[in-house]
Design a protein around this nucleic acid. Structure first.
Length: 597
RNA sequence: GGUUGUGUAGCUCAACUGGAUAGAGCAUCUGACUACGAAUCAGAAGGUUUAAGGUUCGACUCCUUACACGACCA
């Protein structure tokens, strides 16, 4: 279809040249899709040319349309409405476009001129609790963006930066030491991340009680929070950890191990993966070296209390602490180290961080600090900032227990998919194994689509009831359309009709079929735009548009009663092509599609 | 207080980056399954795009101010 658009633009340029004797650069000729209410498929807006051509918008449109009709065979008709020239493209040309699509391999990369070697960092959990709904948006976004960039031919590495050290990790360890009974995931049958999370919560509970008591005794709140015995113990443990205390490190290893097992199980369930894991425990020392480097080069400075800072006022930011007065590192410190490691490992030309928008400032600081250090990889850093997920009841809050657990949510959506599928009763003949795979595919399809269809940068509302719906603008609707096409193709194969059939001789096609071809032709433009803006939402919208166009085609055109053999073969081929496009597009979202459901 | 993001149908979201009468889904109402899968399709109703100015042939989109909600920074 790009070729068709190019043809039209060239022809329009020639028309302007011949009719008005003026040169208009091709990039100023922007064609847009014609609105549904008008005849035609492509529209040229003529308003911008009124000045240079010295004519009214209608006159221009009329003259260009007439010239095209006489000189460009691809144009079959035109109409002019105010400053809009609507062009109708001949059916034969649409068939040629379809042929072009059919010849193109499904995995052919979409050229963009964008980065060719990309690192996508996403997920990046803390090792003191299980994953929740917010992580799911992050994980689905990261995975999908990686897939979209791969579709542009880029080499993409998915990495996970695990936040495995720090005061919060010590809290869950301390909670386990004080309030646990040496239980293990195996002994209790609890998933490791949930077990550790339980002790993090217990720590917080007891800590809060201590603070409350101190406040009741007349201590100021801030002091109470810093001086509560549990907090002192946690700080002490952190120092022991940094000093390499054997007992502490051993407990740390054990508990982190449980969490990794738990997180990995969740990753497997939600279908995301990583090429490499980084651990903050392994990068913060390198970060400290970078801070030292900055001090040596007089880029950073020390305050009287011994803490180290960077001044980013010139960059429109603020002063920012890099090392505390006791020499311990902050988030920014270890992020400096991780950035360097990632660059050493991958030599990326683009490094994407999938992180919630509450970290916008932090990410600016990170990039500005690396730029100050004149690191070659600073420019390539890109923050894919996404909005938080709200519940109908408001924000998710750990303290109020309103956090939606990822594992639980996955169970719920799969169960809902199972119930709906059983109710439809169309899965006779599938084995139990195939059935449970199907439920999983549909439940996760609903969930992923729900979280991905919203523009990443926008805050979004998660409504649990709507997220398991499977009608309308949902993942299962698109999956259903694929299953429907699969059924058509099975029947076609039985009848000996193949999607590879020769279609020459066919000259006309029904409107619904033409619209389907048009929709299929949009794929490269959609991928290009999604890659440029790092927005899976565009791909989700496209997959939905494909499914809708097909269902319309399906009701409009009776495939197997078509008397013309070639037309019938075309409909089957069009179905196959659409099925493939749906599968590919959904694949970019990390959503598989079924043959039956 | 400073910086920044968001504000579109009752609800959840779009709008090709300045183009036509602002589009979908859900919910509501109406119609379509005895040749292919109704998790579908066709239709109705639903809008002062938070407000007021400005820029121009043309503004949801750009600029200014105000309001609301959120995030971050002392």
């Amino acid at each position: 279809m790009q070729q068709l658009e190019q043809t039209l633009k060239t022809a329009l340029g020639a028309a302007i040249q011949n009719v008005f004797g003026a040169e208009v650069p091709a990039d100023q000729l922007s064609l847009q899709a014609t609105r549904k209410d008008f005849a035609g498929q492509f529209t040229l807006v003529t308003f911008p040319f009124t000045k240079t051509l010295g004519k009214g918008p209608e006159q221009i449109g009329q003259a260009l349309g007439e010239w095209l009709m006489a000189n460009e065979p691809v144009v079959r008709g035109f109409n002019v409405v105010k400053g809009f020239l609507n062009l109708e493209v001949a059916d034969a040309e649409w068939l040629r476009v379809f042929e072009e699509l059919r010849q193109r391999p499904a995995d052919a990369p979409v050229e963009t001129g964008g980065p060719q070697n990309v690192v996508v960092e996403y997920s990046s959990p803390n090792t003191n609790k299980p994953l929740h709904l917010g992580h799911l948006r992050n994980n689905f976004l990261g995975y999908s963006v990686a897939e979209i960039l791969k579709a542009t031919g880029a080499t993409v590495s998915k990495v996970n930066l695990v936040n495995d050290r720090g005061i919060h990790i010590c809290k869950s360890m301390l909670g386990y030491q004080r309030f646990g009974h040496a239980e293990t995931p195996a002994s209790d049958g609890i998933k490791g991340d949930h077990l550790v999370g339980k002790y993090y919560v217990l720590f917080e509970k007891h800590y809060r009680e201590q603070v409350a008591q101190l406040v009741a005794e007349g201590v100021e709140k801030k002091t109470a929070e810093a001086q509560a015995p549990l907090m002192l113990a946690a700080r002490e443990m952190l120092q022991q950890w940094e000093a390499g205390d054997e007992a502490v490190v051993s407990l740390w290893k054990q508990m982190n191990g449980w969490v990794y097992e738990g997180h990995n199980a969740t990753y497997a369930a939600i279908g995301v993966d990583f090429d490499k894991f980084y651990y903050e425990s392994g990068t913060y020392l390198l970060g400290k070296e970078r801070v030292q480097e900055g001090l040596d080069r007089d880029l950073f400075y020390r305050k009287e209390d011994g803490s180290t800072w960077v001044d980013l006022a010139q960059e429109g930011l603020d002063q920012k602490i890099l090392l505390r007065s006791d020499g311990t590192s902050v988030y920014l410190t270890q992020d400096l180290g991780t950035a360097e490691l990632k660059y050493a490992d991958f030599h990326y030309d683009s490094s994407i961080y999938v992180i919630a928008d509450e970290q916008n400032y932090h990410m600016q600081v990170l990039q500005a600090t690396l730029q100050k250090l004149e690191k070659p990889y600073a420019e390539a850093i890109h923050h894919l900032s996404y909005g938080m997920v709200d519940l109908p009841t408001g924000k998710m809050k750990t303290r109020e227990g309103t956090v939606v657990d990822a594992d639980e949510l996955v169970r719920d959506v799969v169960a809902a998919a199972e119930a709906a599928t059983l109710e439809k009763g169309k899965t006779e003949g599938l084995t139990d194994d195939e059935l449970s795979q199907l439920y999983h595919m549909l439940g996760l399809g609903a969930l992923k689509y729900y979280l991905l269809k919203v523009d990443p940068k926008k805050r979004m509302l998660f409504n649990p009831e709507e997220s398991v719906k499977l009608e309308g603008d949902t993942g299962p609707f698109v999956q259903y359309s694929h299953a429907r096409i699969a059924a058509i193709l099975r029947k076609a194969a039985e009848m000996g009709i193949y999607s590879t059939a020769d279609l020459s001789g066919l000259e006309q096609l029904p409107v619904a079929a033409r619209e389907m071809v048009q929709e299929l032709g949009r794929y490269p433009a959609v991928v290009r735009e999604a890659a440029r803006t790092l927005s899976p939402a565009l791909v989700a919208q496209y997959a939905y548009d494909l499914a809708r166009a097909y269902n319309r085609f399906y009701t409009d055109v009776k495939i197997f009663t078509e008397p013309d053999q070639t037309a019938r073969a075309f409909y089957v081929a069009l179905s196959a092509q659409t099925g493939q496009a749906i599968k590919t597009s959904m694949g970019l979202l990390g959503i598989p599609v079924p043959e039956r459901m």
